[in-house]
Design a binder for these strands. Sequence first.
DNA 1: AACGTCTTCCAAAGCGCTTTAAAATATGTA
DNA 2: TACATATTTTAAAGCGCTTTGGAAGACGTT
Lengths: 341, 341
Amino acid sequence: MNLKQLSQMLGLSQTTVSRALNGYPEVNRETRERVLQAVRETGYRPNKAAQRLATGKAGSLGLVMPTAPGHPSDVHFGEFLTGLGEEALRHDFHFVITPADPNDEVGALRRLAISGNVDALFVAYMRGHDPRLDMLKSLSIPFVVHGRSIGSEPDYPYLDIDNEAAFYDATKLLLQLGHRRFAVMNGPEHLDFAIRRKMGVSAALAERGLTLDEACVTHTAMTDEQGLFAMERFLQLPERPTAILCSSTVLALGAIRIINQAGLKLGEDISLIAHDDVLPLLKPENFSVPLTTTRSPLRAAGVRIAERLIGQIKDLGSYPEQELWKAELIVRASTGAAPAG
Amino acid sequence: MNLKQLSQMLGLSQTTVSRALNGYPEVNRETRERVLQAVRETGYRPNKAAQRLATGKAGSLGLVMPTAPGHPSDVHFGEFLTGLGEEALRHDFHFVITPADPNDEVGALRRLAISGNVDALFVAYMRGHDPRLDMLKSLSIPFVVHGRSIGSEPDYPYLDIDNEAAFYDATKLLLQLGHRRFAVMNGPEHLDFAIRRKMGVSAALAERGLTLDEACVTHTAMTDEQGLFAMERFLQLPERPTAILCSSTVLALGAIRIINQAGLKLGEDISLIAHDDVLPLLKPENFSVPLTTTRSPLRAAGVRIAERLIGQIKDLGSYPEQELWKAELIVRASTGAAPAG
DNA sequence: AACGTCTTCCAAAGCGCTTTAAAATATGTA
DNA sequence: TACATATTTTAAAGCGCTTTGGAAGACGTT
């Protein structure tokens, strides 16, 4: 069933039917009712491709998903997408997701942008001086970045959390509790959030004349296994750290396992603060020792980014181009006074 | 830059350029080279909407993602999609994901199917007698189901793991270890995999004249928190179960926390077997007591489903319509002989 | 020279929609 | 009644691609 058939059935022109469907004013009330009724009866749905070709609007947001055999999937992806979807649903938008070779994300993004398949793009996992930014700026398609790219002019639209402040505050808290030996279990080295979190830690330490030893920093994928490896390494250090900052609750999970195995008490022998993206899967308050966290719901970021993207496409008023959200520092039992000595 | 401009630039007709691009034989070698070169220089990419309209092929797989405020995201989604993507990438396919009100998945799926936006559909999280099946069968778009729908004629294309056999085998192992009091921490009640897993447990028990007490079964979302609640409940039972079958390693995570808190030893006082979808996030072999699991990589299922879907679209030969994969039973330390008494 | 056969290219139609420009009809006013 | 003005409808063009049905030219054969 297409427009032509539908309009013939109704004895109307395609124009009129199209207008009735799209809410144009210049169509008689009765006629519109008749059209709508016919649509209900036939289950007619306009062909999206044709609509897109005619209007240039696709009703879709595009994103690139890196994938390859052995390339680990991202725990956060589902939760973030659910947030995007919450808002997209309200506007009848959908997503076009292009799988991409992890080494060719820029190319994949570019092809997606000029394919005419999407109205706007979303990118995340920004690196320092991210090459995708120049590409995106050169195109004339709306986009919003989740995160930022250190080393690039901050003249692009983004939504980020203040990673540096979050980890600065967290470190500050640990310093006040008397800790002096710090370690950081961070995300992949080249990623902006990892860079800024480390900066936050270093800045807080510097205020007390302390420096962060590189031996006390790991950069890994955020899985329980990596948390486990990192913690094993920290515990073997001659000057064992008493305060751990952790870029994810999943990493913390592995770390805590090792802490327990070593017979150490979390919140007494070792304090730990993790960043919490508020994944439904893992609640820091339910850890056997509830976790002190820097909290910022990933899903809310998804909702907001969809809102901005769709708002821009539909011209629903203007939004701030740059947003920096504060993370909440939530103190629970995994942080305590530094052990004596 | 579109076809028209490109062909004018080259002094060729659109037909010839189109054919050169799509690998048709009736175009001179030199001419083709010239076209390809121009494409490289200009960065021309055909408009997907136009291509789709002209060919009826979209180069995309469609899926529906339920989402609503408060509706938890799915941990497995990212991993499965990564698998789909692995294969899709090889064929230059992308995904169209429609967010949907959890109460209107059937409608959303139907709209997606007839939007002309996708060449094939994928559905998962099948329920008993799933209403999506009839809808899909009535349409003439290829689809593959991940899982099955108990209570429906098994005449639709699916890929499932043998959940019943997996949990039957797991139960059998525990029986051999002398366990007599069983509990099951399962996924949501209406889902096919949950139903079948419970059937597997019951069947094995029945062979020994045992029955599964409903008080020893929970049906919940698969988060650590729910695992925790469920285990708390089991421990309060007058006849405490000594053997737990668990539909997910994430649930197991919460359960084990409670087991530890209660001062019980996993693999001694209580044995536990969990189903492992092989998520990068959580490795059962790294649990402080390594977990015995029924193992079946979710990602592999994703790859295979994409393979079948794309194969069907591109007519790359035939695939079995129904596939039932065996899960591996991997014995680790979380299972041991039943405690005396 | 005339013919058939390949090879290589092209004009134009068509995919299903939106939208422009104009026509047909209804309504109001002098 | 005649005309101007709103209201409602339509024919046709166009979005950017693929594909059908030829046409033009090169080549070999008789």
